[in-house]
Write a protein that binds this DNA or RNA. Structure first.
Length: 262
DNA sequence: ATGGTGGCTGGGCCA
């Protein structure tokens, strides 16, 4: 079974690329981030025509996450808990879960944080702490369940996950509290199943649209698939499709793919 | 090529 995650930066503007990509690469389950639309605006036909079911949560032009599956889509949860943190009193659509082909799949869009002194930064840390708490409970309840925590984590856990640490001095994504929040989820039992198959340095999943970042190889590794022990032991390979970052109409993120033994 | 973001929306925010 092939699962993947991809921040598409608007599903409506990227629908042709997304449909073509999942079809071309025989993707069974795709976690999507930043759909940037309401649920009634989701371009479903192009995907259902290819044999995919989907679940989506979106309330406006911000955030929005979805899961596509052609191996079943059951037990959809539209957040990881009733206590999921709020920002500006809004429960932002940043997490959706579903069971697809026996895998508990989560599509996660971790808050960006904006700046170290911004309220959004604490929101990010709170959000990650809640996710860790939820993840611990899922594993405690069912230690043998294959769970995939996938998405745009907006964290570069290691120095070589950015092209130049000096540039990121004093900025989000690389701060110690963010890295600690990420490590806490790893320590809870969810390991990065992609990095062993895609060693750095210079291996990224995101390149800013500005300043010719992509051709200049100025990227960041911020999109991850963290797997529970039962998921991790089934991983046969993983890769980042940087080809998909090329050309006109590309998202600023590349898809991240994981192949699982059946 | 002496420059160089994109999306949603409708000016400004967000990333």
């Amino acid at each position: 079974m092939r699962i993947a995650t991809w921040n598409v930066n608007s599903i409506r503007s990227r629908i042709d690329r997304v449909a073509s990509w999942v079809d071309r690469h025989d993707v069974d389950v795709l976690a999507i981030q930043e759909t940037k639309c309401r649920e009634d605006q989701f371009p479903a036909l192009e995907l259902t025509a290819l044999g995919y079911e989907y679940a989506h949560v979106g309330i406006n032009q911000w955030n929005g996450v979805a899961i596509l599956s052609r191996v079943g889509l059951e037990d959809v949860e539209r957040s990881f808990g009733v206590d999921q943190p709020l920002f500006d009193d809004v429960l932002e659509p940043r997490a959706i879960g579903a069971t697809c082909g026996g895998v508990r799949m989560w599509s996660l869009y971790v808050p960006n944080g904006r700046d170290l002194d911004h309220a959004h930064y604490q929101y990010k840390l709170d959000w990650l702490a809640r996710l860790r708490s939820a993840g611990e409970q899922w594993l405690a309840k069912n230690p043998d369940l294959p769970i995939a925590l996938t998405g745009d984590w907006n964290i570069a856990p290691q120095d070589d996950d950015v092209w130049d640490m000096a540039v990121f001095e004093g900025r989000t994504h690389v701060s110690e509290p963010e890295r600690a929040a990420f490590r806490a989820i790893v320590d809870a039992g969810f390991s990065d199943v992609v990095r062993p198959h895609t060693p750095g340095p210079g291996v990224y999943t995101y390149w800013d649209y500005t300043q010719l970042s992509f051709p200049k190889k100025k990227g960041m590794r911020i999109d991850f698939v963290l797997g529970s022990p039962a998921l991790a032991e089934r991983v046969e390979g993983a890769w980042i499709d940087r080809e998909e970052r090329k050309g006109k109409g590309a998202s600023d993120h590349a898809p991240v793919v994981v192949d699982l033994a059946d």
